[in-house]
């Protein structure tokens, strides 16, 4: 039986690579689970969120003798201090993941033999509590929410506004649809890790034009899209109705913007007809979190709209050439 696994606190690309491995070569060792408490959690502990989750796990392990095993990915692994945590150096290879799975299987079977007394109810409670916290987030408490406010303000007041977060500044100019960053684009990821509120992120009506440093310009749509995905980090944004109907008006510029999981498939289906989040997830047979992340980013970048009137949802029929298309996609992915 494959070990049920959750991937947490890691970048989009790591998540995509590892889940790609699990769904193909690694399917006899792991299976990704979204809804059930899992046997294994793979997390990146080189970021704040990963460190926090690891600490929570260690605390719970001491109290409840939690049976969840952690595969912690880090650039500088230390010797495994606790039997439930296996540290592995980044970048991790498929062989190392398979070895970790075999080690966990051994640990689990040893535990079953010794039949340690575990309070299953308490564990389920802890796990589900942990899952709720980890798998969803409130966009208004992140850069995503602050950016929404700034865009609305700039649009309403017909003026430039600047977001101040520590030494970082972002100018939003809704009249020309451009944003200006006072820092390199790759630093945006760091800003998306911070929880923000009105005291840690100030929004002022001003411009960076007079500032001495050089600014990087990009479209507000690109900034909003990237920020939404970086803030989500595979978690599900709150306050989205799974049953409302949405339609994608434009494709995200995926060769230049951050790719999200299944973005091409989701965009393709959502431009064909209006669908609900649940319908897209079911039609494509993909995790609902990925659909929620996509539509959250698409709404923020004004690529999608919410259909107010009930729309007729037409089930999509698969194409006759689907085996050819699968081969071609495999070829392109490997290239």
């Amino acid at each position: 039986m494959p070990l049920s696994v959750q991937l947490l606190a890691m970048s989009q690309s790591s998540q995509r690579n590892i889940s790609g491995f699990i769904k193909t070569k690694g399917k006899t060792y792991f299976s990704i689970s979204d809804s059930q408490p899992t046997q294994v959690i793979i997390l990146d502990i080189d970021n704040q969120e990963g460190k926090k989750l690891l600490l929570e796990h260690q605390t719970k392990q001491n109290i409840t003798k939690d049976s969840i095993k952690i595969i912690a990915l880090t650039l500088s692994p230390s010797k495994d201090s606790c039997s439930s945590i296996i540290q592995r150096q980044k970048p991790i290879t498929s062989i190392e993941l398979i070895r970790a799975a075999e080690k966990i299987r051994k640990l689990i079977s040893n535990n079953q033999v010794s039949s340690s007394k575990i309070n299953k109810d308490a564990i389920s409670e802890v796990i589900s509590e942990n899952k709720d916290v980890v798998q969803s987030y409130e966009p208004s408490g992140t850069l995503q929410g602050m950016l929404r406010k700034a865009v609305q303000l700039s649009d309403k007041e017909k003026t430039s506004v600047v977001l101040h977060i520590q030494n970082y500044r972002i100018e939003i100019n809704a009249s020309n649809n451009l944003a200006y960053l006072s820092f390199p684009k790759n630093r945006l990821r760091n800003l998306c890790y911070y929880p923000l509120n009105t005291s840690t992120c100030l929004i002022k009506k001003e411009s960076l034009k007079n500032a001495s440093e050089e600014c990087i310009s990009l479209s507000i749509a690109e900034l909003s899209w990237n920020t939404a995905l970086l803030c989500a980090r595979g978690r599900s944004p709150k306050n989205l109705d799974n049953e409302s109907t949405y339609q994608l008006k434009r494709w995200p510029n995926l060769t230049r913007w951050l790719p999200s999981n299944y973005a091409l498939s989701i965009a393709s289906l959502w431009t064909k007809a209006p669908y609900s989040i649940t319908a897209i997830s079911q039609q494509l047979d993909i995790p609902i979190t990925d659909v929620r992340c996509f539509i959250s980013a698409a709404l923020d970048s004004h690529l999608a709209i919410i259909c107010k009137e009930a729309c007729e949802v037409i089930p999509f029929k698969t194409h006759n050439n689907s085996s050819l298309f699968k081969k071609l996609l495999n070829h392109l992915k490997r290239a």
Binding site: R16, G20, F21, Q283, D285, S322, F325, L329
Partner: peptide, 20 residues
């Protein structure tokens, strides 16, 4: 890829055998 998926979006496009 986008061309193929706009013909049939239901094809699983997640195949990525290399883990880094």
């Amino acid at each position: 890829e986008a061309l193929v998926l706009s013909i049939d979006p239901t094809i699983d496009s997640t195949i990525n055998p290399v883990v880094t």
